Deep mutational scan, measured.
Amino acid sequence: EQIEAIAKFDYMGRSPRELSFKKGASLLLYHRASEDWWEGRHNGVDGLIPHQYIVVQD
Rank of each mutant, 00 (worst) to 15 (best):
K8P: 02
E4V: 07
E35N: 04
I49R: 01
G40S: 01
F9H: 14
L48H: 06
A25D: 07
S34L: 05
P50V: 01
S20L: 02
L28T: 13
G40L: 00
R32M: 11
R41E: 09
A25P: 00
I54Q: 03
E4I: 12
G47S: 00
G40N: 01
S15G: 13
A5G: 12
H31G: 11
R14P: 04
D10T: 08
F21D: 01
I3Y: 04
D10M: 06
L19E: 00
Q52G: 13
E39K: 14
S20I: 02
W37E: 03
L48A: 10
P50M: 08
F9R: 11
E4N: 15
G47C: 02
Q52R: 11
L28M: 13
P16T: 09
D58Y: 14
E39L: 08
E18C: 04
G44H: 04
H31P: 01
L19I: 07
K22C: 05
A7E: 00
L19M: 05
S20T: 08
L27E: 00
A25G: 09
G47Y: 01
R17L: 11
P16L: 11
G24T: 03
L29W: 01
L19F: 02
V55C: 07
W38V: 01
F9T: 15
Q52S: 11
S15R: 08
K22F: 14
I49H: 01
S20H: 05
E18F: 09
L28G: 10
D58S: 15
V55L: 14
F9L: 14
R32W: 05
Y53I: 07
S26R: 04
L28V: 11
Y53H: 14
G40Y: 01
G24R: 04
L29I: 15
I49S: 00
V55G: 07
Y53M: 11
V45H: 04
V45K: 06
H31I: 05
I49E: 00
R32V: 04
N43C: 05
S26E: 15
Q57H: 15
L28H: 12
M12F: 15
D46E: 05
F21G: 00
E35T: 13
V45Q: 13
P16Q: 15
G44Q: 10
Y11C: 06
I54V: 12
H42M: 12
R41A: 07
